[in-house]
Structures are given as C-alpha cells and as structure tokens.
Design a protein around this nucleic acid. Sequence first.
DNA 1: ACAATTTATGTATATTTATACAAAACTGAA
DNA 2: TTCAGTTTTGTATAAATATACATAAATTGT
Lengths: 142, 142
Amino acid sequence: MYREKEKRHQAILDLVDRTNLSSQEILRKMLKTIGLEVTQATLSRDLKELHVVKTIGEDGEYKYAIMEEISGFQIASCDISGNLLVLHTDPGMAQAVAFRVDALGLAGILGTVAGDDTLLVVVAEGYDSRKVRKDLWQGVQK
Amino acid sequence: MYREKEKRHQAILDLVDRTNLSSQEILRKMLKTIGLEVTQATLSRDLKELHVVKTIGEDGEYKYAIMEEISGFQIASCDISGNLLVLHTDPGMAQAVAFRVDALGLAGILGTVAGDDTLLVVVAEGYDSRKVRKDLWQGVQK
DNA sequence: ACAATTTATGTATATTTATACAAAACTGAA
DNA sequence: TTCAGTTTTGTATAAATATACATAAATTGT
C-alpha cells in the first residue's frame, strides 16, 4: 500500500496544478473519479506533506496551490555526473520537485526518479547535461 | 475607522513576518496586546485581502506567511521619475509590497506610500534612483 | 516466517476558518 | 446636517481542516 500513497501524491500535485481546487472535499471527489479513494483526513495529511497550501487566486477565490519555493528555491543543489543530474532538495521535497521537472517536458530529459530529498534526472543521449541543467533551472524558476 | 483597518493590516503583516502564527486565534490575541481588538472573522477577511496563507514551516508545523509572489513577482512594473520610483502591483497588493520594501531598510529609501495597486518610493537625496531600484528589486526577490 | 517497529489510514471529533446576515461606521453630495 | 450609498465589523453559524486514537498494512531484522 506504500505505493498507493505515492501515486496519490502525484495525482494530487497534478490536480492542484491543473485545476482550481477550493477544498479538500472537492479534491477527494476528483481523486475518486480516478479510482483513488481516501478520506478528507488523509488528504489533509497529504497536503501538509506536499506543502500544498490554500491560497487566494487571482480571482480572489480560495485555491490550493503548491508552495512557490518548491519551484526553484527548495532545490539546494544540482550536480552533474555524466548523463545524470543529481538534485538535492529540502527534506521531503524531492517528489514535488520531480513533478515540476517532469511538467517542463524538456526534450533533453528522459525521466526522473525521486527519493525523499534527492532526485535523479536522466539526460537523454545526444544532449549536453550542462545545457539541460540550465534549461531545467530556468524552467523551474516559476 | 477606515484608518484602523490599515493600521491593523500593517500590524498583521508585521506579526506574520516576525513570529510563527499557527492560527487566527493566536493572531487575534497578539493584536489585542497592542490594542487592536477584532474578532477572528475579521482576521479571516484581513488575511484573505493581504494574501496571507497558512503554510507549512521548515519545522513541519503550520505557520501563516505572506504569499511568496508578493515579494517580487507581484510587482508589475517599476518606473523612475526623478527621485521617485513608481511601482505598479497586482490589485490590492501595494500595501504588502510597501511593507516588504520598508523591511529592506535600504539607506537610499526615505519612505513609501502605498495605494491599492500603486506604490511610491521616495529616493533619498544623493542616491541614484536607478541604483536604488536595482537594490530594491534584488532585495525583494526572496 | 515471525515478532517488533514503523508507516498509513479511517473514524470521530476538536479545532480552525469562512461567510450570511444585520448593524454600525464612514463617505460624499446636496 | 441629513440622506443614500459604501465599507467595515461582529454575531452566529456553516464549512472546512487538523488530529487523537485505534487499527491495519507494510517494513525490518532475525
């Protein structure tokens, strides 16, 4: 069941990113439609872990959003080793950062694997890791 | 009484910035100690206006904080006219930005006056407005 | 495989936050 | 000043969120 949580976390980040969620109850229903059934209590805990917060949108309405630091500032370092980028993040933030990186859809990135505070980014063959890092960094800054 | 609200908003931003507020009730009590008595309901509305959100701190505990965009991203423009900087912000954000600017404590800045979405920054004599703008911008990013 | 430990989740509920509504305070114009 | 319109606030309460506690599931070490 440990995998369920991860999957759900991904789905949550995804939904938070793409839609305007105004309450955990709505999020719960959305998750239900994709076969992920949990209670509001669990979502409260998930959101806390994921650093997703209830913000005020441009329209003045409440809306859940990923905390801004995630998109850039919470990356502590980004080193290169061959065709791998090794990113260190604040504790527990690797998943969220990975999500952001994936969302960039950079051609030079084959995929990511995230642990708790470390993240591996696999650079595609024929791409310069240094260049990819630069693109990643730029893209991730908002 | 219109002035009370402004004063309170300043105080709120100040407290949010300096202390770890975990609930509106605590904020209410703090404000009370400095002679500002309002109900939780009013604070809920204040925080919405000020774009102050309940985030998760580094220690994993809940904590109110000014939304990050405020510190930089919500500045739409920053023009120079003589010894004045004229900043335009998103609607209702001028106060919050002014607070941030004041907090920088830059020697080249005499003071700020904020409306709703516009903010005047008075540059001290003997300082280059262009340089001050640069410092302000830099300081406000983060 | 088993026991011990850790992690995840639901249930029930406490706590916290948002808001409908009414009243009060303020504003601008005549 | 007085009136009409606007804004702010409190009260009461609805709505939303967090968590104590119990249990189940997963993990670890043997």
